[in-house]
């Protein structure tokens, strides 16, 4: 049996609106992934350290406050510094199209804007990590 995909779901910045982060965390868990939810107000340093310690393959950042252009590049820089470029970073939240394009250019694997389906996020992660769905995950 292959090891399940491990995902860190994090809420960086000062914003406390965690509805989306929690829904995603549960959905990924229901899809058979191992999910570590950091809770609120994580700095990029805290997020990357947690990713390292938890040995995750994916970091999901939930940002609704408009601070993505300040926060996401710092997370990417720190991952490079620690030679963790293989960890996929995905971003969910209120990110305008131009910003999403720029973040992807910098190394973000995907940006999910409002209205994105849970299924599309699950599928993206599976294909990015290159694993077939675990059998127990079909719901």
């Amino acid at each position: 049996m292959t090891r399940p995909i491990r995902v860190l779901v994090a809420k960086p910045g000062l914003d406390g609106h965690d509805r989306g982060a929690k829904v995603i965390a549960r959905a990924l868990r229901d899809a058979g992934m191992e999910v570590i939810y950091t809770g609120l107000r994580q700095t990029p340093e805290m997020i990357v350290n947690a990713a390292l310690q938890e040995d995750v393959q994916v970091i999901g950042l939930s940002i609704l406050s408009g601070a993505h252009n300040a926060i996401v590049p710092r997370v990417l820089d720190l991952l490079r510094e620690k030679k963790m470029e293989d960890v996929k970073v995905i971003v969910g939240g209120i990110v305008p199209d131009e910003d999403a394009a720029e973040l992807k250019k910098q190394g973000v694997a995907a940006v999910f804007q409002p209205g994105a389906s849970l299924e599309s996020i699950v599928q993206f992660i599976r294909s990015a990590i290159g694993k077939a769905p675990a059998s127990q995950s079909v719901s």
Binding site: G13, L14, S65, G66, A67, H68, N69, A70, I71
Partner: peptide, 15 residues
């Protein structure tokens, strides 16, 4: 936090 606090970076005047 004041606008010049480290944690305010990227968030000042946004919301």
């Amino acid at each position: 936090y004041d606008a010049d606090h480290a944690l305010s970076e990227g968030e000042v005047g946004k919301c």
